[in-house]
């Protein structure tokens, strides 16, 4: 499947001599997937870009830790670890900040939901734009409301089209857990969206 078609594909091991270059290629090839995951985990562009940058540096240095399997899953696992590290230190900062009585919360879900309204729009009709913006805001809110471990599994599956095996490798969990998280995520999202989104689309087909 598509997971075998990266620049590295399923070669057994990156050779030490060429690995930084190959890893660089791999990472750049899957940069959108990496950034998208970071963006959904961290909620804003700045942190996502920084986390992906950290991950890139780390991946090129740790090229010899790749030992077969899905290369993009290996790369996204590193990206995810860098995102979690950033979340961790952000939580810490926010705790310190809140002691001062200021929130400093300018990249919370509300803003990131707003930011999602505008980019990637191909519609030129104002009505359509507005409609799309509202739908996007609603989906973004619903996704943000999911527990993060459900959200990341769902994004990797539905948006990045990763296989169960790849998701398991990225999240470092057994495949059975991937399946149960996906099931829970889908059920929760379906409930949040009240089945409306689903039936709208069904009728539209």
């Amino acid at each position: 499947m598509s997971r075998l078609r990266g620049p590295i594909g399923r070669c057994r091991r990156v050779t030490t001599a060429t690995s930084p270059t190959l890893v660089g290629e791999l990472a750049l090839h899957h940069l959108d997937a990496a950034y998208n995951l970071g963006r959904w985990l961290l909620g804003n562009e700045h942190d996502a870009a920084d986390a992906v940058h950290d991950a890139f540096v780390r991946a090129t240095r740790a090229a010899d830790t790749y030992a077969g399997g899905s290369a993009r899953a290996w790369w996204l696992a590193i990206v995810r670890n860098c995102c979690l590290a950033r979340l961790q230190s952000r939580k810490r900062e926010m705790r310190h900040v809140s002691l001062d009585g200021t929130t400093g919360d300018d990249d919370g879900p509300a803003r990131s939901a707003l930011e999602r309204l505008l980019p990637h729009s191909e519609a030129d009709d104002v009505e359509e734009l507005l409609d799309q913006a509202q739908r996007r805001a609603r989906i973004a809110r619903a996704l943000d409301a999911l527990p993060p471990e459900f959200r990341e599994a769902l994004i990797l599956r539905e948006i990045e089209a990763f296989s169960y095996r790849e998701i398991a490798d990225v999240l470092q969990i057994p495949i059975g857990t991937v399946m149960s998280r996906l099931a829970r995520a889908r059920a929760l999202l379906h409930k949040t969206l009240g089945g409306n989104a689903a039936s709208e689309v069904t009728h539209g087909l």
Binding site: D32, Y35, I139
Partner: peptide, 22 residues
Amino acid sequence: ELDALRTTLRQDAPRHTAPQLL
């Protein structure tokens, strides 16, 4: 239902593309 949910997500949960600068 599963398919509708996926369609909704692929249409309306935009995939954030990496900034050119990055």
